[in-house]
Design a protein around this nucleic acid. Structure first.
Length: 326
DNA sequence: CGGATTTGACCCGCGC
DNA sequence: GCGCGGGTCAAATCCG
């Protein structure tokens, strides 16, 4: 069942104060001392092999994020390396724990010793070339019957070819402690569906990037085990920049507060904001400030978190969970 | 009025 | 083959 979540990022943003801490508290997977990170590091070994990247081109978090295979890596964007990421996030507060559990390359055990810091920078997104269940693109005979001319563009995206299985887009999931379901991430999304989730009282919402031709989708749902946790799953890669008309111009904020320090941007276009924008809790800083206690303080140990569709995390990352059953 | 959301129907893959 | 569950569509509705 753990077919897709090759990368799972668990964020535990803990903003004790207000906005400022948001930037300061950027702890991607920072130097947090939480048990979560420890767990995260645990995931770094053995049993992750089968969860490792399938596509070496996506060896970095950002690459996945932006769908580029150039040097747009998170570490690159922040001028950090897998082993020195802590530098970039030195401002991380102790209480601000963000958990990033990857199931990709970084956790793959290659070089993920026990430093969750490195994990993120080397994280990779799942890239499943030929996945089995690809239901994204389906044909719609009904509509076809009704209209076939003008609607072709729409169908073109979903009616590739009968036999030709739709390629699975790389995805990764965030688990974010948040009171709001749909975390602001800088992109414009249009909700196109909502479904009840089995074994969960909380529905799952489906969003599509509103930018033309951008294939990115995301699903948002709440963990039924810990309702305060929102699981956001991104699928696909944006082929465009973050819309400039962001509320509060978060992109600017981010680039200023985050990119200034030690960012040795490498060649090639980099959209640092994209990285950050993928970190909902960070991004929310700019938009959800009004909310009183937007963020909670603690994160349910992720061994208790249930992943959508894929069962418990320990099912996916057995090594991270010595022994424990549902 | 146009864009976004809601929501029930439909499609599809998978397991039994 | 059938039922289930997940994902998507699109008409209806909402909202600024």
């Amino acid at each position: 069942m753990a077919e897709e979540y090759r990368d799972l990022y668990y964020h535990q943003p803990l903003y004790n104060d207000r906005h400022d801490s948001a930037t300061n508290g950027f702890t991607f997977s920072g130097s947090s001392s939480s048990a979560y990170t420890q767990n995260a590091s645990l995931t770094a070994d053995s049993s992750f092999h089968n969860l490792q990247m399938l596509d070496p081109s996506y060896t970095r978090f950002t690459e996945f994020l932006h769908g580029s295979n150039d040097n747009n890596t998170l570490s690159g964007a922040f001028g950090i390396s897998r082993t020195s990421s802590s530098e970039a996030f030195s401002r991380v507060k102790d209480e601000q724990k963000s958990v990033v559990v990857g199931t990709g390359d970084f956790v793959g055990g290659n070089e993920t010793p026990a430093t969750p810091n490195s994990s993120i920078s080397s994280s990779s997104a799942e890239v499943v070339g030929n996945e089995d269940s690809s239901k994204n693109q389906k044909e719609n005979p009904m509509k076809e019957a009704m209209e076939d001319g003008e609607d072709s563009s729409k169908k073109e995206t979903k009616t590739k070819k009968k036999g030709e299985k739709k390629q699975k887009q790389p995805r990764f999931a965030f688990m974010t402690k948040s009171e709001v379901d749909h975390l602001e991430d800088g992109y414009r999304w249009r909700k196109y569906g909502q479904k009840a989730v089995k074994n969960s009282p909380y529905p799952r919402s489906y969003y599509r990037c509103t930018t033309q031709k951008c294939p990115v989708k995301k699903r948002v749902e709440r963990s039924f085990q810990d309702p305060s946790i929102v699981i956001t799953t991104y699928e696909g890669q944006h082929n465009h920049h973050v819309p400039a008309t962001l509320r509060g111009n978060v992109a600017g904020m981010l680039s200023h507060s985050m990119l200034t320090p030690s960012l040795s941007l490498q060649d090639g276009p980099i959209f640092p904001q994209d990285l950050l924008l993928q970190i909902p809790h960070i991004y929310n800083y700019g938009t959800a400030g009004s909310t009183s206690n937007f963020y909670q303080q603690t994160l349910t140990p992720f061994e208790q978190l249930q992943l959508p569709d894929y069962g418990l995390l320990q099912d996916i990352i057995p090594s991270a969970f010595p022994k424990q059953e549902t």
